[in-house]
Amino acid sequence: MSTLIHNGAIAAADKGLTTATSTETSNLMNGKHRPPKKHEQSLEDHRVHQQQHQQQDEQQQSTPQKQAAVSSSSSSSSSAMSADERKATRRSLVIVAGIFIASLATMCYVYAIFPELNAAEKQHLKIPRDIQDAKMLAKVLDRYKDMYYFEVMFGVVVAYVFLQTFAIPGSLFLSILLGFLYKFPIALFLICFCSALGATLCYTLSNLVGRRLIRHFWPKKTSEWSKHVEEYRDSLFNYMLFLRMTPILPNWFINLASPVIGVPVHTFALGTFCGVAPPSVIAIQAGKTLQKMTSSSDAFSWTSMGVLTVCACAALAPGLLKNKFKSKKKVA
């Protein structure tokens, strides 16, 4: 009896095992069996890592090509820009050369229409380089001024504008000469007109070809003056008056650098015309005693320098007040 029971249990166990095995096999065949969740997640992470590695490899392979393409395009664009700049520079140089040739032709015309001079007088008919040249030229021009009034005036004006246009020293001696030849109102107007016209022409030439040269040779002065111009942007006319009355910056540098740092041409021209008036008064007064002068420094005494300083401070005062009010408003 016990034997039969034992054999039945074994048979039932075998049947259960067979049933479980068949069930698992059927599940596998039907696709119902799935691996454990942890194993499935690890497989998915592995696939993601492989995809990331593949993308990185593709990017590394394509990056040199992209960099080469970008560098080639940038180099081509830079070469195109340099070619355009070269064309613009050539065009500007042609314009400057044309202006210079036209100026020389005008000077030759003035010499041609001038009255006939003897050999002793001709050697003094030149742009004065020192006070002795100015004295001798004044004697020659004074002899012909009454008979050839406009010819003499036109010749001095053309020479003055020529010097101012091409930033050539010597305009101070011509200012003294005009003070010697003409009455005070006429001399003052001629000096202011010639200074404004010549400086504006110099401004134009600098705007055409001088930007890079100025930034290259005078980077410190240009950057410092740019800051001052921005500071006095709302009262730029007064600042131009101040610069023309004081020797802080030479006039030739003001003429060349103004277009580079953004000074408008109308403000520049008007500020020059009015700003040179006080120093011109001193030069005209010196011209009345030209034959007694021994050097150009005799024109400027301590009294005249004090008057110029007062005028310069008065011209700069409105700008200082505006900046002070602005700072107070910002604080408030």
Rank of each mutant, 00 (worst) to 15 (best):
S26H: 10
V96K: 00
V110H: 10
D57F: 00
D298M: 04
C311S: 12
M305P: 00
A159Q: 11
D133C: 07
W252A: 02
R90N: 12
W225M: 15
L213C: 07
C192L: 05
E224W: 07
A68D: 13
T165G: 07
L316M: 13
A332T: 12
P219M: 10
S62Y: 07
P35C: 05
H228E: 12
T267N: 06
F300K: 03
A283D: 02
I282S: 01
L177Q: 12
Y148T: 06
K38S: 14
S22E: 13
G16E: 12
T21E: 12
D234Q: 07
F217K: 08
I186G: 00
Y203M: 03
P115C: 04
S77M: 12
S195P: 01
E85Q: 11
M153D: 02
S2R: 09
P169A: 12
V70S: 14
N30Q: 15
K328L: 13
F300R: 01
A83E: 15
F273V: 00
E58R: 13
Y109I: 11
I284L: 07
Q54N: 08
F217L: 15
Y144R: 14
P259M: 08
A134F: 03
Q52E: 10
S171T: 14
K292G: 02
F242W: 08
H33S: 09
E24D: 05
S92F: 06
N7D: 11
